[in-house]
Design a protein around this nucleic acid. Structure first.
Lengths: 329, 329
DNA sequence: TTGTACGCGTTATCAG
DNA sequence: CTGATAACGCGTACAA
């Protein structure tokens, strides 16, 4: 790898001059600029980001911490982040936390050790010292923190919509799957749904789950129908769980949506491909990723930020696990 | 952030001594070690990886280049890489290439600018200068390169198995979906299947596709059944395409697997959840990621490598888009 | 308009 | 066993 020194020698100038043309700063004569540029071309020189980073105490790297890239929801998020960052010449160091505080802390630490200029984290523990003591901007994505920059979708509203639509379509004994207690968006969804149902005086059961793993989801789905065999509507905490419920319902010989309606959350690719295809509350995952990246960049560049918190809209995506509502005049 | 200098001052020693205890190199008196360690603890000091990287001209970072993390096959790969790397204290800079040579080159360049010690790339263009001129080890993952370190699964054998099983289950007018021309594993699968079918003198059609996007897959699926309405067996280039074919077949009122059998490739989560669930040739994606990471680490540490090329086995995963073969005595 | 020299935080060499 | 100090590649005062 050629260094700035090589370029300087090759062009017959000093490193300072090379640096000037590189960074387009200060005055440099047109002729010498040409020489330098020629040298850069010949040597195929590209600046060493590490040296830059050391000197400036900041890199062009940002850290992205996700629970598990293997969960279909997160790649969308990640891709949104990546695209926006790439367009702005930032690169990404990525890590999977498995919702494990220790791993999380470890990653955040190596992020700072590598001089990242900011981080995007999807964490359930935004209020730990890990983040509080950080002196780089952090945007919380999906999993929210009060009064901290964050991008998330309106889970509560999503829950409300789900409940509302399900009732409108005739379910009367609804079961809400509550999702992991420590996962805030899951709780928001639950709350929203529960509120509506309570308001309308409609009976509902609650099933608590503790992870998003598909195999475990199957177990809970079984329990659900054992405990509440008469459930005629299930509001799941996400599409993975909804899928497990759908499979179990079908396995039990129930007709979906006639015997039991199901509404998921997220709208991952899978959802539209199931048979019957899954009605769900869609989160704009890709756009959330982009928004988070965009917000982080603003934070990094210290621009004035109006809204440090961005809530994205959620949309009812009607498919075949819910009944059609009659079109009256 | 505390620096080594701060620690030195705090402990009343020189930076050299701190460096020694940090790196456990050379002699250092037990007492002074204690002092230094105490200082490190109090100041919560962690070494600046950037400075280290600058001096040593190598970091603890590796680059991971994937076509598109949004394609369900790649997160598995990525996770395998990440887990293995994490266990060995390497961190990952990730990039999506979209199979775009320019983007690819750009990423590789920023990888080296950041002093990565190695890279894992899933690329269709391993033979470009981008990689040839690189003086860090690169492991090619999934997409293979001759005579270069690589990890891939046996696509040819997979194709053979698919053809064999499909014939054994009675299909007589088979259509092979060939997958993008520039994607080597797709061509291997095609070749394997075509070989078997030719050998056995069985008629087959070929449909060529040019991407793995799901929406486009739908179009090809339509074309397939328009052109070859009597097809009674489809060997798809991957599970995404197979899913599109399944949907189209069902839409046309065909019975699967009675009228038409379908075999996919990869075994992504989706496949087991479809109705009917998808018979497929499974690739051990996660393990492939881990193997690639492991191989790269060996390359980095310059250990003796016996097999620079690792071919992973592929397994026939029988589900419900193929008929059951009779169990004779 | 250009060059010299220092510092970013570390490691390694070489005296002591 | 420990401490100065040069060097890694770059950017920027400051001088010329």
């Amino acid at each position: 790898m050629a260094t700035i020194k090589d370029v300087a020698k090759h062009a017959g100038v000093s490193v300072a001059t090379v640096s000037r043309v590189l960074n387009e700063i200060g005055y440099v004569h047109e002729d010498t600029r040409k020489k330098v540029e020629a040298a850069i071309g010949e040597l195929q020189y590209t600046p060493n980001e590490v040296a830059r980073s050391l000197y400036k105490r900041k890199s062009r790297l940002i850290g992205l911490l996700l629970p598990d890239i293997t969960n279909p929801f997160f790649p969308e998020l990640a891709r949104g982040v990546e695209d926006e960052m790439h367009e702005n010449d930032f690169r990404i160091i990525i890590g999977n936390s498995d919702e494990n505080i220790k791993k999380e802390k470890e990653y955040i630490q190596t992020f700072v050790q590598n001089n990242v200029v900011g981080a995007i984290a999807s964490t359930n523990h935004p209020d730990t010292d890990t983040y509080r003591k950080l002196n780089i901007p952090v945007v919380f994505l999906d999993r929210t923190a009060d009064n901290r920059p964050s991008v998330y979708s309106d889970g509560r509203e999503g829950g409300r919509i789900a409940a509302h639509e399900m009732v409108a379509r005739g379910s009367r004994e609804i079961t809400i799957i509550q999702g992991p207690k420590h996962v805030r968006p899951a709780q928001d969804r639950y709350q929203g749904a529960a509120d509506i149902l309570s308001d309308q005086g409609i009976l509902f059961n609650v099933v608590q789950t503790s992870s998003y793993s598909f195999t475990e989801a199957g177990t809970w789905a079984k329990e659900l129908f054992e405990q509440y065999p008469n459930t005629d509507g299930v509001i799941a905490s996400n599409d993975i769980v909804a899928t497990a419920v759908l499979h179990e319902a079908l396995r039990l010989g129930k007709k979906v949506p006639d015997d039991v309606q199901i509404i998921g959350f997220d709208d991952i690719l899978l959802s539209s491909l199931l048979t019957p295809s899954l009605t769900t509350i869609r989160q704009p995952a890709y756009d959330m990723g982009r928004a988070a990246a965009s917000l982080l960049i603003q934070l990094i560049e210290n621009q004035n930020i109006d809204h440090k918190t961005i809530q994205m809209p959620v949309t009812f995506t009607e498919r075949d696990t819910t009944r059609k509502v009659e079109q009256h005049g």
